[in-house]
Structure formats: structure tokens, C-alpha cells
């Protein structure tokens, strides 16, 4: 099963994924429409912990605490991608799901999908409609450093292991010297 992975060594925190996600989930599909639109929302958030940046979003856990916690039939598992999906029509914004999600991947907002003019649970939907027509999730396509990759989980783990082993044996990573210097210096910032 394909999943979205993040190579945090490569994330430069440009937030292109956030914008691409918001465009994808906006009815106008245009960056201009996002400006000042309170109903626009991004399901991915770039965060920084110490000096590591990464795009954080729903991991579509299986089993998922949030799905188990939902008392209104709004959180369901999609058969196609085995993704965790919100049905805004059934969602009562009760926050039972958010209360148990360790990644803080669920927020509440009034969006263009709100059927009753109020907030509902908002989270990553895996861009299922894009995947169905052979595209990548919007955030993955937006990532110019290939920090976000959409790939089969097994092959990703293997390639990562290989790369790590290689850098261990050869004794250097692929990071250019100037980028390494930058990261070293950045560690001295607050």
C-alpha cells in the first residue's frame, strides 16, 4: 500500500505543501482564491522541532484511535487507500477524535464542505480523487526537495535502509558541504 513519507533531512520548511494542499481542497483550485479566505484550509502543517523541520499530517494509522473514538459515524476507513476519511455530513465536531490523536492531525473548521454552516473535523484525505486518476497527493507534487514521497511503504523502508547503510559504510551523506555547514550553524540558533 502506498503511503506518504517524509525525509526530514530534506525538508526546508518552505511550506509549499501547505499551500498546495489548501489549493487542492479549495473549490476554485487557485492560489489567489486562498488569500483572505477563512474557509480555506490545509491538512498538512510544517512544524519545526529543535532544528528539524518536517511536514506533519495524518498518518492514517491502522487501527486508528480516532476512528474508534468517533461516536457519530463520521470517521471511516476508505477501501481504496485504507485512508481515514471524514464525512462532514455526519460529523458533529464533538472532538472525540482530536482528543485521542497523538499527532494533533485533526482540527475543526468551517470549510466549503460544511453542510450545516458550522465547523467539522478537518484532516488529510490522502487526495484520494487525485490518486484515483493516477496523480500523487498534492503535497507530494509540491515538494521540490523530494522530502515528501508517495511510495510503497516496503520499498521506501528498504531504500532508506540502503541509503543509511551506504552513508554508514562510505562515511558521508549526500548532503552538500554548504548545506551541512548551514545546518551546523543553525543549531546554534535558539
Amino acid at each position: 500500500m502506498k503511503r506518504i513519507f517524509i525525509d526530514y533531512e530534506k525538508c526546508v520548511a518552505c511550506k509549499a505543501c501547505e499551500i498546495a494542499c489548501a489549493i487542492e481542497h479549495h473549490p476554485d483550485k487557485s492560489v489567489l482564491s486562498l488569500v483572505g479566505d477563512k474557509k480555506a484550509h490545509s491538512n498538512v502543517k510544517v512544524i519545526a522541532v529543535e532544528n528539524i523541520n518536517f511536514a506533519s499530517s495524518c498518518r492514517h494509522c491502522d487501527p486508528a484511535y480516532c476512528v474508534d473514538a468517533c461516536p457519530s459515524g463520521a470517521l471511516k476507513r476508505d477501501r481504496f487507500m485504507n485512508a481515514v476519511i471524514v464525512d462532514p455530513y455526519m460529523c458533529k465536531a464533538c472532538a472525540m477524535c482530536a482528543m485521542v490523536c497523538p499527532f494533533d492531525a485533526i482540527t475543526f473548521k468551517k470549510t466549503y464542505n460544511s453542510p450545516f454552516g458550522r465547523d467539522h473535523a478537518v484532516k488529510c484525505d490522502f487526495c484520494i480523487e487525485r490518486i484515483k486518476i493516477g496523480l500523487n497527493p498534492a503535497c507530494v507534487d509540491a515538494c521540490k526537495t523530494k522530502a515528501l514521497v508517495f511510495t510503497d511503504s516496503e520499498s521506501f523502508v528498504k531504500s532508506k535502509e540502503k541509503a543509511d547503510l551506504k552513508s554508514f559504510l562510505v562515511g558521508h551523506s549526500k548532503e552538500p558541504a554548504n548545506v551541512k555547514l548551514f545546518k551546523e550553524l543553525k543549531k546554534e540558533m535558539l
Binding site: C11, V12, A13, C14, F182, K186
Partner: peptide, 8 residues
Amino acid sequence: PQCGYGEL
């Protein structure tokens, strides 16, 4: 986090 492209 601030944009790394900008920082670089």
C-alpha cells in the same frame, strides 16, 4: 519554521 529556501 521559516522557509529554508529563503534562509539559504
